[in-house]
């Protein structure tokens, strides 16, 4: 019984997702440049499901400034800019419920598959969508 499990463990793949590379390269920037040129290969990231709720995406052109998203947002992520009648979103507060996406009458809001949002600064430019 133990032997069977042991052999199975030897040939089965690990349960966790693989790292992009097996060993840490000496220089990450040079390695990334090599990947860009096609000289080196990395394990591709695990794809997210199609309905994944990641960082919110905003189509500025479509927005009509109706403020419905502000009314339904539970985390007060969205701020209205009255001078241009558009919105600004602080993603650091977002709870990814996507209620604003459902509420938007003109489909100006959508959810991207982008989930790497960790930052030390809550007001970092990549965490503000406008």
């Amino acid at each position: 019984m133990i032997l069977k499990t042991l052999v199975a463990q030897l040939i089965s793949r690990p349960a966790t997702n693989r790292f992009p590379v097996k060993y840490m390269p000496k220089s990450v920037t040079r390695f990334l440049a090599q990947v860009q040129e096609g000289k080196a290969k990395i394990h591709p990231p695990v794809p997210v499901p199609p309905k994944f709720r990641g960082k919110i995406a905003y189509d500025r052109e479509k927005c009509i400034g109706c403020q419905l998203c502000i009314r339904v947002c539970p985390a007060k992520v969205i701020e209205f800019k009255p001078e241009v009648k558009k919105i600004r979103m602080y993603v650091a507060r977002c709870t990814f419920c996507a209620q604003c996406v459902d509420a938007c009458p003109v489909d100006a809001l959508s959810l991207s598959p982008d989930f790497l949002l960790a930052s030390t600064d809550r007001l970092a430019p990549e965490l503000i969508v406008e």
Binding site: A15, V48, P49, K51, F52, R53, T95, F96, C97, A98, Q99, D102, L111
Partner: peptide
């Protein structure tokens, strides 16, 4: 490890691993 599978299914159905935000008054959202 076995539990991961059901979390994957929930992520597939709702888009979130936890806090699925599925029910709403009068129905469901997805």
């Amino acid at each position: 490890r076995v539990r991961e599978k059901v979390l994957d299914v929930l992520e597939e159905l709702s888009g979130n691993r936890i806090d699925y935000a599925i029910p709403i008054f009068g129905g469901v959202r997805r």
